[in-house]
Nucleic acid binder design. Structure first.
Length: 213
DNA sequence: CGGTGATCATTC
DNA sequence: GAATGATCACCG
């Protein structure tokens, strides 16, 4: 599948997926149905023509749009938080303006997908192509800067920091250490971590845009 | 092998 | 139950 040429084409493709069962989407694209982490996201990337998944840039680079699936329960509420971007600890410059978090959240195609039922029965929901409001932008920026500032002091940052954005482990395992800059600009070994959106954020997002009757 | 796709398991 | 901290498969 070629990447969509513009946002309208992406919307058309998203509409076509809405209501479809994952197993039918998989069959159309010759993808085996396997229960494994990341399978849903990778399937929808393929079905929508997103660029290969292992790059630190939006899934649709020409459109500047990031694709995010949201696993939802029977009441339509997210059951998990949402990975946004890895923390680039090997950089001196962790300003919000140039951050991957900001770039990825500037425009997102959110696709709710059923999650609390057997994999074969799960259906894809109606997508929402979204950009943060001014309030959301400044709140996300605040969280990001709080976290980065704490890191700059050399403090231990847990997932408790941040209203909507949080920092959590992300990697092969806790023993998988990488080089990073410490608070004095020296090199230090650290486990990789990443920014996630809390469920409260995506829950409010879905509630606002898919108001329950 | 590292980053992205996430979900799993333990703790609170 | 919900959140935190940990982990897994896939892709290039």
């Amino acid at each position: 599948m070629e990447p969509p040429r513009d946002e309208a084409e992406l919307r058309t493709r998203l509409s076509a997926l809405a209501g479809q069962r994952l197993c039918d989407i998989a069959a159309e694209h010759a993808v085996a149905v396997v229960k494994s982490k990341g399978w849903v996201g990778t399937l929808l990337e393929k079905a929508l023509g997103a660029t290969g998944s292992s790059r630190a840039e939006p899934d649709f680079p020409q459109l500047g749009i990031e694709l995010k699936t949201i696993p939802i329960d029977e009441r339509g509420r997210p059951i998990e938080s949402c990975f946004v971007a890895s923390l680039e600890m090997a950089r001196f410059d962790l300003r919000w303006e140039t951050s991957a978090v900001r770039k990825k959240l500037e425009r997102v195609a959110w696709v709710p997908v059923q999650a609390s039922i057997p994999l074969e029965q799960r259906r894809c929901g109606a997508a929402l192509i979204w950009s943060p409001s001014d309030e959301e932008r400044s709140a996300l920026r605040g969280d990001y800067e709080d976290i980065v500032d704490l890191l700059g002091t050399g403090a231990r940052v847990t997932a408790r920091t941040g209203t909507w954005l949080q920092l959590r482990p992300k990697g092969r395992d806790a023993a998988h250490l990488r080089w990073a800059l410490d608070e004095e600009g020296g090199l230090a070994r650290t486990a990789p971590r990443a920014f996630y959106l809390r469920r409260t954020f995506t829950a409010a997002l879905l509630a606002r845009n898919f108001a329950a009757p």
